[in-house]
Amino acid sequence: MSAVGISALKVLAALGLMLGNGVVMIYMLRKVLGHLHIRLGPIHVGWKGTLQTVMDVLKLLTKEDVTPRAVDRWLFRLAPAVVFVPSLMAYAALPFSDTWRITNLDSGLLYTFTALSLIPIGLLMAGWASANKWSLLGGMRAAAQQIAYEVPLLLSVLPIVMLVGSANLGTIVEAQQGTFLAVLPRWFIVNPLFWPTFLIFVVASLVESNQTPFDMSEAESEIVAGFATEYSAMKFGLLFLSEFSNQFIVSALGVTLFFGGWTLPWLPASVVSALGPLIFLIKTYLGIFVMMWIRGTFPRVRIDQVMQLGWQRLIPISLVWIVFSGIVIKVWS
């Protein structure tokens, strides 16, 4: 098969993964939140309500697509695509196993962060083009918070890159294979040097994926639905699909960087190699489950508090930690 054909297949695979992931995650979100809230979530359509999401997607597809008269038509139509495409791009560098990956990029970590950081442009476009004051506030919030948190997100993971000596996500996972003290996995989360790194990463990635308690840009109790206020039908669907997909990506990044990606040290290498993608997905969905748990429990932070936390705490702390861990890594080796 030609190189172009393979590339096209890979893009289709990424698209399928993203859509399938959206359907699974919406169902999961409803069930998890439902049980956290002492209710059942969807139960009627399909076995245990499993087809509910399919029905909802059908509803979104067949709904009237309302374009308000006052909007900036081009930007309004373009914005969902500008939000959707970078989140699709971000799948490219994720290592699902030692063989299962769309591309093997040496700058995989940087590439994924870059793709994620393109999203606020789309959100700002959506907010501006909607000609709605709530949308504008939502778009501004999205831009402000994502700019504030890209820096600590990237800075926080630099110690890992320094230790591994590569920004290739696959190499980072391979550095975490095996065990020490016979039982503990060599995952970076076990290493005390990366505990502050992990905390900063969790906070910053919650902000980046626009999750509670940092879901400023669509805080429904404050600014109605933020940038998505004027969107309906599948344009709205795309905006939300991309949000679920971002949640998946940051969770997958967390698994890759701190929880050993597709590896599971207690199983023989041949089994791990065969089940790699499955292990990776299970770990990722566990991470998503924790995010949903947070969403079901925590109140929302105020926008100025988010900004203060980012600029005044996380950035200085991660800078200091880079210097410190740099010294430790140098002395160690």
Binding site: L33, L36, H37, I38, R39, T212, P213, D215, A219, E220, S221, R295, G296, T297, F298, P299, R300
Partner: peptide, 15 residues
């Protein structure tokens, strides 16, 4: 609770 963005509190209170 809902005003702060926390959903659970509302449903617990409703119980």
């Amino acid at each position: 609770g809902l005003d702060t963005g926390a959903m659970g509190q509302f449903l617990y209170a409703m119980r």
